[in-house]
């Protein structure tokens, strides 16, 4: 087990902070001391790990944060900021990134809507009597012999009199409404 001061020296060596003479002394010690060599190797691995982690973390920092960092630095230094141009994503890129972000929401909504639609189809009421299913005949034309006589429900003939006649032949009924003006002397 080495002294704490030796360990600090080893750490400084691993970080490259020792001058040439002190570094040569540590190298000599490490060659002779197995324990010191193991510690130095461990320190090297630890440093590598830390570096990799920081590199990965920096990849996730959005460009805009870097922009702000550059601006802050420029402001502190007092020079105009030279911000590296940031490429804006295109329409498709924005749409796909939106879906990536909200995929879960859309799927949840779609599944719920499907369930509601299924329930709606099961519980759907029959079409109202007044509406006619497309494609079906609107009105049934009865054979002439089976047709009922027409009924004049209301007749208003302002300034005249109305005469209603019902004629029947093999083609069916004909309702004739003849309007005679009040001042007509000779009517039909």
């Amino acid at each position: 087990m080495g002294k704490p001061s030796d360990d600090i020296e080893l750490m400084q060596h691993a970080d490259g902070e020792l001058d040439e003479r002190a570094a040569a002394s540590v190298r000599t010690r490490v060659e002779k001391d197995t324990d010191a060599r193991t510690k130095l190797e461990a320190l090297g691995q630890m440093s590598e790990l830390m570096r990799s982690h920081l590199e990965l973390a920096s990849d996730h920092v959005p460009d805009r944060k870097f922009e702000n960092i550059w601006r802050t630095i420029a402001r502190e230094v007092g020079t105009p900021a030279e911000v590296p141009p940031v490429r804006k994503p295109g329409m498709w890129g924005r749409v796909s990134s939106w879906f990536d972000r909200y995929r879960g929401h859309v799927i949840t909504g779609a599944v719920s809507a499907g369930a509601v639609a299924a329930i709606a189809l099961v519980l759907k009421p029959a079409a109202h009597e007044d509406t006619i299913v497309q494609g079906s005949p609107t009105i049934e034309v009865q054979p002439a012999a089976l047709r009922a006589a027409p009924v004049v429900e209301s007749l208003d003939t302002p300034g005249g009199t109305g005469t209603v006649l019902n004629l029947e032949d093999e083609d069916g009924h004909t309702t004739v409404i003849w309007v005679s003006p009040a001042d007509t002397v000779e009517g039909i």
Partner: peptide
């Protein structure tokens, strides 16, 4: 001249 409401079979004439 005239304002009337008639119920008539389809195909028949008024």
């Amino acid at each position: 001249v005239v304002d009337t409401t008639v119920t008539v079979e389809a195909g028949d004439y008024v």
